[in-house]
Amino acid sequence: MANDTSEKYHKHSPANIDRNNVVVSLRNIKKAFGSLEVLKGIDLDIFAGENVVVLGRSGSGKSVLIKIIAGLLRPDEGTVQVLGKEIDQLDVHELQELRSKIGFSFQGSALYDGMNVRSNLEFPLVRNKRNLSSQEVQKAIEKVLDDVGLSQTINQMPAELSGGQKKRIGIARTLILQPEIMLYDEPTAGLDPLTSEEINDLINEVQQQYKTSAVIITHDLTCAKSTGDRVVMLSEGRFLREGSFEKVFDTDDPVIKKFYNYNFISDS
């Protein structure tokens, strides 16, 4: 079944994964909003240099999971360790320091409307590395813009950018702090297939060039196949299957089959 998806989307570049180094560790994570149980006991380890894709339908708790990793939401139960530190045990300053090593690419890009591209990129940099000279700041901005291929947009406002450009600038804004872990929330949502492919390539380039580990939240199979070293399938608050893209979809589980077929038909 997994072979139905075109081979051209398969991740080609081999990742340099260090399986002795766990950068994110989730144990028995549970989260509910009122009576609605969103996560029902999630266990997950992410290794250094690895891109892990969390696949699932809308409302399956993917975004909640990624926000728990970033410390934006607290789990009701369970422990979250990021880069060896338990998030629950950190004070505000320790959490801020840890977050400077985590890049978060939001579904809607979350660029600051009132600032142009330069100021958007400058904003986290000057607040996290206060001893940088203006020349070093300028150099860092030019480098990340070059890395995402959007040097020409430096003076543009977010409203003047296309959806794909906004995603790229959003990723550039996280890269400027040289993160060790990247969290992508629906990186290809709302983009046309060609732009989606460019974003998938960018995710792989970031992994190679910045040596990052990543959690990629998506319901887009092409994105999962193109970017994931490992795929986990989330359904109704639990992981159903885990492994390579082919392994996850090589099953008769009706939930996974249905997800695959719908996605494949809509992609076609």
Partner: peptide, 11 residues
């Protein structure tokens, strides 16, 4: 999510 973006960028 711009406020959350500030939080995760350690600001």
């Amino acid at each position: 999510e711009q406020i959350e973006a500030m939080e995760v960028s350690s600001t």
